[in-house]
Structures are given as structure tokens and as C-alpha cells.
């Protein structure tokens, strides 16, 4: 970059010089040494940018890292038992087991039910619902993680973005989702069945996407997630499930 004194430095050159990004620092310095007008402009820029540094950032407490780690550790689930971690990675097995359990409980309840034993019937129904509630809640949480990952993935600056991890997870979740949907439908829980049907379509799209996607493909995928509003529905439904789990006594009568 040649910087003759008769041609004043542009604001862009001054900004780049301030941030040590100028392609020819020596040329700019030489010009600033010789040209009062540019020197004034640069000092003015310096004052403005230096004043930006006055913007305060709140002080964090001394135990910030400890508090953060506690919160992260709980969310990362690293302290879960081997069994819990195994289950986390085997949604299909969980789903199948739960489905068998629910159907068995449902059939048992119907066989043993007596018109005079109303209390027992209500209790059985509550247990069945609670089993489904816990299983679906866990399933929705895992599904939400995949959807959030994709909805917020940074656009690939160059080339493609590897979504093979999300894809594999979506494939696993898809199988589980089918079983939960069928179970919910057969138990007459239509709101749950409808949500799971919507979720299934999105999981299917993810599972069938290429394992590496371009920015355009990623955008299309995001659009499908957004258009169906599935992330929002899953979040709302998930929080409802959490509330119901927290209040098991109320879980008897209504659907999920």
C-alpha cells in the first residue's frame, strides 16, 4: 500500500491501523508522521475507540467457575450410573421395554378390573400413565437436544457441516418415537400421539439427510424444523411432562 501524503488516509485505513490489521503499517506511520490532518483524524478515532473500552463488564463472584461447573455437570449427566448412560444411548431398547410394560400393565388392568374395585382401577391407570410419562419425557428431551443442535448450528463458512452425529441420534430416536406414538395411540392419549407423529416427520427428514450438509441444505433443514414449530411444541410438551412428573398425584385422570 503506497500512502502518499497528498492523498489522505481513509477512515478504513485508520481503523485497520488501529487494530494492527493494516497491510502496510510502515506506510501509514510515515503518512501520519507527515500529515497533520490525518494525525488529527487518527487521534480522534483513537479517543472514540478507547472510550468504548470504558464499557464495564459485571464482576463475577469468586466461585463462579464452581457454580458453573455444578450446573454443567448436572446437565452433562456425567454422574449418571453406567445403566443410565447405557439407556441414554439405547432409546430403542428403552422404548421397546416401556411399550411392552405399558401394554402388559394395560391388559392386566383390563383383565383384573372389577366394577366394585374403582380405586384400584384408578391407581393402575395412574401407574400406566406415569410409566409412559417418564419414558416420553426422556425421549422428548433427547429429541429436543438434536433439534436445538441443528437449529443453532453455525453455518459452515466453507464446504459442508458434518451432521452425522445428529443423524445417527435421529435414527435411534425415530425407532423409539414410532413405538411411543403407537403406544400413546393405543392408550387413547391422542395429544401425545399427535405430537409424536409431528416429531417423527422431522426426525425422518434429519435421518434421511446427507451426513454432511451445505449451508443451503442446513438452512432447508432448519426451515423444516421452524415451519412445523416442532421445537416449540416439544419444549412446551416437555415442560408439561416435567410438571406432571413433579405432581404425580394429579397424573391420574387427564391425558399427557
Amino acid at each position: 500500500m503506497n500512502v502518499p501524503t497528498e492523498n489522505h488516509l481513509t477512515e478504513e485505513q485508520l481503523v485497520l491501523y488501529y487494530y494492527s490489521e493494516a497491510s502496510e503499517t510502515a506506510g501509514v506511520e510515515e503518512h501520519l508522521g507527515a500529515c497533520e490532518s490525518c494525525r488529527k483524524a487518527y487521534h480522534s478515532l483513537q479517543r472514540v475507540l478507547n472510550s468504548v473500552d470504558s464499557l464495564p463488564v459485571p464482576d463475577l463472584s469468586a466461585d463462579y467457575e464452581t457454580r458453573l461447573w455444578s450446573a454443567l455437570d448436572a446437565r452433562l449427566g456425567r454422574r449418571k450410573s453406567f445403566a443410565a448412560r447405557w439407556l441414554l444411548w439405547k432409546p430403542l431398547v428403552i422404548a421397546a421395554s416401556m411399550a411392552v410394560l405399558i401394554i402388559a400393565a394395560f391388559l392386566t388392568g383390563r383383565t383384573l378390573e372389577r366394577p366394585s374395585n374403582q380405586q384400584k382401577s384408578v391407581a393402575d391407570s395412574g401407574i400406566r400413565e406415569r410409566v409412559l410419562l417418564v419414558a416420553v419425557g426422556d425421549h422428548l428431551e433427547r429429541s429436543q437436544m438434536v433439534l436445538v443442535e441443528l437449529a443453532n448450528a453455525g453455518a459452515p463458512a466453507t464446504g459442508h457441516l458434518d451432521i452425522s452425529y445428529e443423524q445417527r441420534t435421529a435414527e435411534d430416536l425415530l425407532e423409539a418415537n414410532r413405538l411411543y406414538r403407537q403406544t400413546a395411540a393405543s392408550a387413547g392419549d391422542f395429544p401425545t400421539a399427535t405430537l409424536l407423529e409431528d416429531l417423527e416427520r422431522v426426525l425422518l427428514e434429519i435421518a434421511h439427510s446427507p451426513s454432511t450438509v451445505s449451508a443451503k441444505q442446513l438452512e432447508d433443514l432448519r426451515k423444516q424444523i421452524e415451519d412445523k414449530g416442532i421445537l416449540f411444541k416439544v419444549k412446551i410438551f416437555g415442560s408439561q411432562v416435567e410438571q406432571r412428573e413433579a405432581a404425580p398425584s394429579k397424573a391420574g385422570a387427564a391425558s399427557l
Binding site: E11, V15, S44, L45, V48, S51
Partner: peptide, 21 residues
């Protein structure tokens, strides 16, 4: 990226220069 920074600096300059000068 460079032009985003330039635009940001321009806006900050417009707002702050009268004050700091």
C-alpha cells in the same frame, strides 16, 4: 467481516465523537 467492523466503528464514531471531543 471487515466492512461490518468499519460500519460499527462509523456508527460509534458518529455517536461518541461529539462527546469525547
Amino acid at each position: 467481516a471487515k466492512h461490518s467492523i468499519f460500519r460499527a466503528v462509523q456508527k460509534l464514531r458518529r455517536a461518541l465523537e461529539p462527546m469525547v471531543s
